[in-house]
Amino acid sequence: MSGPVTRLLDNVRNGRFQRSLALVTAGGSVVTAAEIYLEHDRAGFGNRMMWWPVVLGPVGAVAGVAGACSERAAHTLLPVASLQGTYLHVRGIAHKPGGWAMARYNIEMGPPLFAPLLMSMVGGMGLVAAVLRREA
């Protein structure tokens, strides 16, 4: 009973959990994409770019399952994607009547300000997985 658990913990302590983290990343990507779909659907997909994170979710899943995500692409695309998302959400808040002058109200009612950064943490897990050691 204690065998597999001990081995798992031992692997994690020694940074050997690339495969499991890649799988977690895959699962997380699907969940994240679904959540983004629901949130963006609530907002009527008013901007075509709102489809990108939804489409990219399954891509992340495939990459995660393959466990062979391209390290270079991930390094560049991920920060760009999350910054772009944050920029679009900031612009969305500014477009609401009253804009930033009524920040207290518009940040809460506008597009969620920090969501793109939060969602990109799943991608961050993928990055970490890329540099980990494989399980023993």
């Binding site: 907002a43 009527g44 008013g46 969305g92």
Partner: peptide, 13 residues
Amino acid sequence: ITNGRFGNRPHCL
């Protein structure tokens, strides 16, 4: 009533 942006029309308040 728009639920989300539609063209340049904003989301309902």
